[in-house]
């Protein structure tokens, strides 16, 4: 078993062609909060990964689950973060559009959680995902992704433009969400 990534919340290990994702204990938070978050997120992760695939969003195949641990198919590709182009951003838009049409939101849409393999984009890490058809939830999803464009990619305006193109193609409610994203950006610093 080889540890291939150690993120803020989980350790990802690779064994053969199986990913073992273990949500790690955090000393800084109360045991009650810690275990609640790890258990809930593991459970949600698994349930929604499967749900998304049923809707045509490429995700890894789940092999086994325990309290804080998931075994699933290894998507042997590169994070979108490292290969992003306007064309791929448009594809990402289509992907998120499909997810939202399906009634799901991801909750942590970043360019690290979208994997490029075989000319296809896969969505991973559903730990913060939920079944949610609200404009607000969808808006936050897209807003969070745009923030990672802005904070880590130089040509972010073009990426956003192409993302919207793809998003509109696969999701009929796209315009309302895009308007909500603008509102979220301008909201809530000083009441």
């Amino acid at each position: 078993m080889e540890i291939i990534a150690s993120g803020a919340e989980a350790v990802i290990a690779l064994e053969g062609n199986t990913i073992i994702k273990t949500r790690v204990h955090k000393r800084y938070r109360l045991k009650e909060i810690d275990e609640m978050l790890r258990r809930d997120r593991t459970r949600t992760d698994v349930r929604l990964i499967s749900e998304a695939r049923r809707c045509g969003v490429p995700t890894p195949i789940i092999r086994d689950v325990t309290d804080f641990e998931i075994k699933m198919e290894y998507i042997d590709g590169v994070p979108l973060k490292n290969v992003i182009t306007p064309a791929l951003s448009e594809k990402a838009g289509e992907l998120v559009g499909k997810l939202h049409s399906c009634g799901l939101v991801h909750g942590d849409l970043t360019t690290s959680n979208i994997i490029f393999r075989d000319e296809k984009l896969f969505l991973i890490d559903f730990g913060l995902a939920s079944i949610d058809k609200n404009l607000e939830a969808r808006g936050v999803d897209v807003h969070v992704l745009f923030q990672t464009f802005e904070s880590t990619h130089e040509a972010h305006e073009e990426l956003i433009l192409f993302f919207k193109k793809g998003y509109r193609r696969t999701f009929s409610g796209a315009d309302d969400v895009i308007n909500r994203v603008k509102e979220i950006e301008s909201r809530g610093r000083y009441a």
């Binding site: 009650e32 909750g107 942590d108 849409l109 913060l128 936050v140 969070v144």
Partner: peptide, 13 residues
């Protein structure tokens, strides 16, 4: 004791 309250993190927000 701890009383469970809503924990709301959405991505980075």
């Amino acid at each position: 004791r701890y009383i469970p309250l809503p924990y709301t993190v959405k991505g980075m927000d």
